[in-house]
Structures are given as C-alpha cells and as structure tokens.
Design a protein around this nucleic acid. Structure first.
Lengths: 223, 223
DNA sequence: GCTATTATCGTCAACATGACGCTAAACACG
DNA sequence: CGTGTTTAGCGTCATGTTGACGATAATAGC
C-alpha cells in the first residue's frame, strides 16, 4: 500500500478583517520541518471523513467557529512531490472568510495561533505562501461577482463598513457615493434592518443585513 | 501506513465541441466496479509526479494532445469516503477545453474512449456525474469573464464560429450583430489575421486568432 | 449656534447594452 | 446575367450603468 498512496491533509486559509487590515490565521510551528516558521492551520483527513468535513473540523478546532459563520469553500489542491520533506503529502486547501471575532481564537487547540497581516506574513512554511496568495486572489475575485463581502461583516452592518471590506481586500479606495448607489441597487445584496447606528462621527447610518442573492447583479468591478 | 493515507488519482473533464454540441470524453469501464458504465478518464498519480503533471500525462495518453493545445486547469478535489467501493480514493479533477481534433483520440491507450454528448451522458460511474456537472458549470462561468472560448476553436476562426461556441456551451442563442460588436470591442480578445474564409454559405468572413487578453473587458454576460 | 464629519441623494457625461434596420459579398438557380 | 438566399459586418436608438463630483442631512464637539 505504499505505491500510489499519499497522506492527505487539509489546510485552511482563514481570512478576516481586524484592525482595518486583512489578516490570516497562522500557526507558529514548534517542530521541524520549518520549525519556528509561520504556517497555515491544517491537519490530516481522518479515514472515514469527507474532505469538507475535515476542513470544517479543523476550522472548529482552530477558531471555535462553524463553517456557516462566514463563507467556506474549497480553494485548490497542492501535491508537488517535494512540498513536504517528510514524504508524499497532498493537501486540499480551503478558504474561509470570517467576521472579526468578538472572542478571538476561543477554544483553539493549536498553541501559537495568531491573526497576522495577510499582505506581510514573511516566508511561510511548505508551499503555504502560494496557497495564501491563491486564497487572497480568490477572495478578491469573488468580491466582484458575489455578495461574499458580507461574510467579513457582523450580522448587521453599515454601508461604510461594507465599503471598508472592499477597500481593505482590494487595497484601494472607492467613492462612497457611487459605492452606496451600487450596493443598494444590486438585487438582494443587502436589505435594510430599519435601524440606524452611530459608528464614529458624523450622521448616523442605516443598518443592513445580508440579502438572499448568491450572485451580484450588476457586479462590483475592481477599479 | 494505512492510517491517514489514501490513493490519489486525477480525473479529467475533457470538453470539446463536435457536431455542433458540447461533448465530453468518456471511457466505458470494462471491469467492476461500475462495469459497463461510462466514466471520466483518469489514473493514479505516480509517486514522484506533481498533480498537474499527472493530469497532463493522462491527457496525452487519452488524446495525444498537449495541455497547451487548449485550456487546462485544476477543477476541484473529491474525497468522500464511499466514493470508490474499493477503498479510500481522493481524486483531483482537471478541466480541459479542447478544439475539435482533426485526428480524434489518436494514440489513446484507453480502449473504449469516446466523445459523448456532455448534456446527456446518462448515469456515470463513481461521482463522475457531479464532477462533470461542476466542470461544465466552471466552463460556462469562465466564458463570461475570460477569453477561453477560443480554446474550443482552431488557431484561426471566424466570429460566427466563436459565437457558436458560446451558444453551444450556454445552450442559448445570441444576436450575431451584438456579439460581433462585443467581441471585436473587447480589448485583445481576438485579432484579425487579415485573411477571409468562406465557411458554408453567404458572405466570406474575416479570420481571427486569439488575442493576448487573459481577462475579458468588458465581459460577455450570459443572457 | 458653528464646524467637522459622515450619510445619503442627485446630476451629468461617457460608455455599454439589447433590439433591430441596412448594406455587402458570396453562392445557387433559372 | 439577374434574382433570391444566406451570412458578414456596420449603424442607430432607447435604456441602463458607470465614474466624477455637487448638494444636503444628521450627528458630535466646541
């Protein structure tokens, strides 16, 4: 059973927006290989476990969160022969977009898990740098055509907060008036809760919740 | 080495347009399980082989084609515990969009490989029905925002032939005049070769080749 | 009050879109 | 040769979307 078999793992690209920047959950490795380096959280797929289930289990173990808290999808699979010096390991990467947690990394069983700036992680262990880059690019692209930006937001949010998500992930600035027109005009993207909230300074803003759309029409294209 | 290991295979969703319809390359299984059923071509990943390389090798074995002949990308990975009754098999699916081959399935080592209508395959072996459906949906979506429709075309083609690709994959009809305006207006999508060709009846058409664009701007949205 | 700040609405020109008319260039047929 | 048929390619028009940006509303701080 050694021919043509490989260890199968799942690795997670968990993205959130904290402190006004895109951050990713990383774990500092305590053992070789890559001892002391940051790595994506992950682990083995159990013998009778589906891939999605393994990724969901890892998500719970690392963050205490449920996959339904934000957005969760398979990203891609990486299996270059030399990617793990210990042997043949094929990893199925998952991407999750999560709201900023009130209780950060509660119940994590992985000591040393930390939210780190996604655009300045330094060199990661294994091929995790590439996996992270692929995850960020997927997230950026999905914000254009899907309502997934709301996955970064709490259940109710202002349009300015939603705009901040786009600006943070895309690393750009957007005109507040045009953005307001587009997101309120897109079918079932967001719906008003009826309440208003004062966030920082200035006029109070309407609160919105996610709408029912799964595709954004019309889309919000990157400038 | 039985704990946490699995056999890793690649399966191919090879799409082409033949006889005016979207077709997929399938293989009739000669042995159990699923004996007699149609299945996607695929095979084991060799011990020292990258996933992309394994998929490219299978493509060559089945069709004699190079991945650069059309478009080639990883689709998704499937690893439900019961998907193969013989044991734990995780499969990495690849999607290829290919031009109609002048020499169909030349050099195929898989007896019983055939191009079959992609929208009417009947029940496939394993979870290949789902993999095929995912592949078709990916292809449909990619035609909107990328110039990949040209992957179905020979090196030089008319705008009507390109339109037939969209109409076949999307199962719809498009206005020839608006389509002409959009594809010629999209930046670097296609460039004229300078030659003209008479295809069937009517006025001769300009011939075009693929342009350099990797993203379609503006996109061609499904009606 | 007055000012700074943010939210929301409105205006306008440029561009994209769908529906569809019109002419051009080939062939087939009598 | 002339006429009809077919497809290619251009043009028009009403409508919708976009980016740039003006104007007003509602709050806090002073």
């Amino acid at each position: 059973m050694t021919l043509n078999t490989a260890a199968v793992t799942v690795d997670l690209v968990l993205l959130t927006i904290r402190q006004g920047e895109l951050q990713v959950l990383l774990i500092r490795r305590g053992i070789p290989p890559f001892e002391g380096r940051w790595a994506l959280p992950g682990g083995f797929v159990l013998p009778a476990e589906d891939l999605d289930a393994a990724a969901a289990r890892e998500l719970r173990e690392e963050t205490g969160l449920d996959p339904s808290s934000g957005h969760f999808e398979q990203l891609a699979t990486y299996g270059a022969p030399g990617r793990d010096p210990r042997g043949r390991v094929v990893t199925v990467a998952y991407l999750a977009l999560l709201p900023d947690l009130p209780a950060p990394v509660a119940g994590s069983d992985a000591a040393g898990a930390e939210w780190r700036p996604a655009f300045a992680t330094g060199e990661l262990a294994f091929d995790h740098g590439r996996i992270l880059a692929d995850g960020i690019e997927r997230a950026r692209a999905k914000l254009e055509y899907s309502p997934l930006a709301t996955a970064f937001c709490p259940p109710s949010f202002t349009i300015a907060e939603l705009r901040a998500v786009y600006e943070t992930v895309w690393r750009t600035t957007l005109d507040p008036r045009n953005f307001h027109r587009k997101v309120t005009g897109a079918e079932n993207f967001i719906e008003p809760t009826g309440e208003t909230a004062i966030r920082d300074r200035g006029r109070p803003a309407q609160l919105y919740r996610r709408g029912t759309a799964t595709l954004l029409h019309p889309p919000l294209l990157r400038p």
